[in-house]
């Protein structure tokens, strides 16, 4: 089976609020996929379910043909919107922490990425700017040898320079045997690195299409398509 991520009728509610409503989706190997939607559309919930971090939901989820769970977690690397690092940590402590925690952590790749990102090993994590924080989180997530990388808002709230650097790093360090699912509500600059996009609105999947097909068939950028679909708000 070459499908890396498969969701079948996945729903999730938080109390009365329905975060995901019967989402079915298949993502193949070797793809960079944009998961697009406004705030509260269910992007993070979908990511956390795929990462095996939310156990209670309806429907079925498989990673590389295995039901999501303890074993699938070794196949997925999740970059959360909020950092997992502790405030006392320096950059090098965060690296050591991940190395202890994940058997598939590639320290050489991490050190290489730190240089690329211009992150100082001795800098305190709590003193880093938002852009530098994101660079560190991305370094930590991409330095694992996983099959599916789940990046939640990797360019959210960062300035254009840091955004460029983060996109460079994604293209530079992306491994063609794996897939990336990138949740974002910002389309600027990032749409060129996607193979496919998935639009989520109020917990429902409303579009899953190759980006070059959107451009070829409609003469539209992903950004324009996004505005067209979401403009009734």
């Amino acid at each position: 089976m070459s499908d890396l991520l498969q969701l079948d009728g996945v729903s999730k509610s938080y109390g009365a609020k329905r975060a995901l409503n019967s989402v079915s989706l298949t993502i193949g190997s070797g793809k960079i996929v944009g998961l697009l939607g406004s705030n509260g559309s269910g992007k993070s919930t979908l990511m956390k379910i795929a990462a095996g971090l939310i156990p209670n939901y309806e429907g079925h989820v498989w990673i590389n043909g295995q039901p999501v769970g303890r074993t699938s977690r070794s196949l997925t690397s999740f970059m959360p919107d909020q950092p997992l690092t502790e405030s006392w940590m320096r950059v090098k402590d965060a690296i050591a922490f991940y190395k202890d925690f994940y058997a598939d952590f590639d320290t050489e790749k991490a050190n290489d990425m730190l240089k690329f990102m211009r992150l100082e090993r001795d800098a305190r994590v709590s003193s880093l700017s938002k852009g530098m924080q994101k660079r560190l989180q991305l370094t930590l997530a991409l330095s694992r040898n996983a099959r599916l990388y789940l990046l939640d808002e990797p360019i959210g709230g960062v300035d254009p320079v840091a955004r460029g650097k983060i996109l460079d790093a994604i293209v530079e360090y992306y491994d063609e045997n794996s897939s990336l699912l990138i949740a974002t509500h910002l389309m600027q600059d990032i749409e060129r690195i996607f193979d496919e996009v998935v639009f989520l609105k109020d917990g429902e999947l409303i579009l899953h299409e190759e980006v070059e097909t959107i451009r070829a068939n409609n003469g539209q950028s992903v950004d324009e398509k996004f505005k067209e679909v979401f403009d009734d708000a």
Binding site: G30, K31, I32, G164, L167, D168, V171, E172, Y174, E176, D189, R192, I193, F194, D195, E212
Partner: peptide, 9 residues
């Protein structure tokens, strides 16, 4: 990497 675009493209 140079053009900042998807390798598959």
């Amino acid at each position: 990497v140079e053009l900042q675009i998807n390798p598959n493209t």
